[in-house]
Design a protein around this nucleic acid. Structure first.
Lengths: 247, 247
DNA sequence: CGTTTATTTGAGACAACTCAAGTTGCGTGG
DNA sequence: CCACGCAACTTGAGTTGTCTCAAATAAACG
């Protein structure tokens, strides 16, 4: 638990492109996450208020505690969401993937921070714009509520995960979640093309880097997964699931 | 972690009084929780659709996985909310206190179960009624979203709690939360008038009953708290806070 | 190519877990 | 009113898995 007492990178540099983002028509996200719950009309209405934001790898999108001036929808890339614990430790509360809505537009300050694991593209909205967008159609509030509800379910899954005490099932479950969020319906590809630092896994699972490392090493040795510089290759999903349910 | 593999009580007996609940005018909840976010008009509109439900101690209000036919607002009493883990263990995900909204009206099935620690009184709404209530006023959706958002914050607090590894801070933080939810603004009363089974605390914190017991015993021995049949008396809040922040 | 960051490995301590008995409290029924 | 049964709570002794501390690679970056 000695890991990461400081954010990976210092400055909150947001290199945002000022250009208006193209309409959602070609966005593969329009059927997923928050956007997926909107009609085509609503989507274009929303798109009119968005800007395309790009975020380099390891850069901070926003910090915990800062005033919420914008909200975001992830288009591309993987973000790391975290909170500071009172002991200064960092608790990763989740990873944002394409389609996810970042920040709650109705609360005035960010209750978590976010930075990019890879280069990321996002739709950025000014908070007031987003709220006025919500106001113009009652049903949108429902979409928001459902989105938050899904975050809640996600958070509860993490609670279940953390209440596990042995390391193997925890790491296995984490890997499975990661795999799941990248799985394509009709694609049997077993490779997840992201490098998640072990320190992040540790912070997410509430364990030390060493334990995460030893556990991963065991998985690799037993040919359950294979870790390359490209990402993680899931060699034996069946066995991984078995481990995840062992306790 | 050998605790409670079965619900405390068997039957899902809901002894519901059919009477229409009186309007909210005298309800002390109207400034708290979900109801607290409604205007007087909205409250009475909602009240018209409610029934007063009473639940005996240890009885089950609803089960995880069942179809969501009703939603509830707690008026009185303390409920235990839990999920089943894949290993059959029970994970207490929280305790519902007066003002809390139970169940998400937009999802078709309960994602957690609930039963009463003490006798409880609730406002019961048919799910469709509640939804049509939401539909009649756009702002109500916002109230719902905020309510869910607060559950989310709560859940994340639990994540932070579970990521602690030592027993003392965990139990201390739990006790403080319990105390906080019973604290009155201008009242220095240190007694929380509920008996929470140690097994529940264990299931909430992801520890064994034995460890919870030994930790509580230590607190009692050191005169930080005092446990009677009535509830828990907080003798030394300052010290408890210090313990909660020790790590 | 040197500096920083991430990963890997080892040895030992310790806190929480497991298992196994007790004890207490309380409601039920004889 | 006491005996009984059940559930919650206590206590002890031994085990174990993760953490801690420390140090050696290996990779990433300018």
């Amino acid at each position: 638990m000695t890991s990461s007492r400081e954010p990976a990178r210092g400055d909150p540099a947001k290199s945002l492109l000022g250009e208006k983002s193209r309409a959602c028509d070609y966005c593969e996200l329009r059927n997923r996450g928050f956007c997926g719950r909107l009609t085509a009309e609503q989507q274009s209405l929303l798109a009119a208020k968005s800007r395309l934001a790009t975020l380099e790898a390891h850069k901070t999108l926003f910090r915990q505690g800062d005033e919420t001036d914008h909200v975001y929808v992830v288009r591309n890339g993987l973000l790391r969401l975290y909170q500071r614990l009172l002991d200064g430790r960092r608790q990763v509360i989740g990873f944002a993937k394409p389609g996810d809505l970042l920040l709650f537009p109705l609360s005035g300050h960010n209750d978590y921070g976010a930075d990019a694991l890879d280069a990321a593209y996002l739709c950025q909205f000014r908070r007031e714009d987003f709220i006025s967008f919500l106001r113009c159609d009652p049903e949108l509030w429902g979409a928001l509520a459902v989105t938050v509800q899904e975050d809640l379910l996600q958070s509860r899954r993490q609670v279940a995960l953390l209440s596990q005490r042995r390391a193997e099932p925890k790491v296995a479950q984490f890997l499975l979640t990661l795999h799941e969020s990248y799985a394509r319906p009709n694609n049997e590809t077993t490779l997840v093309p992201v490098r998640v630092p072990q320190a992040d896994i540790a912070d997410f699972l509430g364990m030390t880097v060493e334990t995460v490392n030893r556990t991963l090493a065991r998985f690799v040795r037993e040919a359950v997964i294979s870790v390359t510089k490209r990402g993680i290759d899931f060699l034996d999903l069946r066995r991984l699931k078995a481990i995840a349910e062992s306790f």
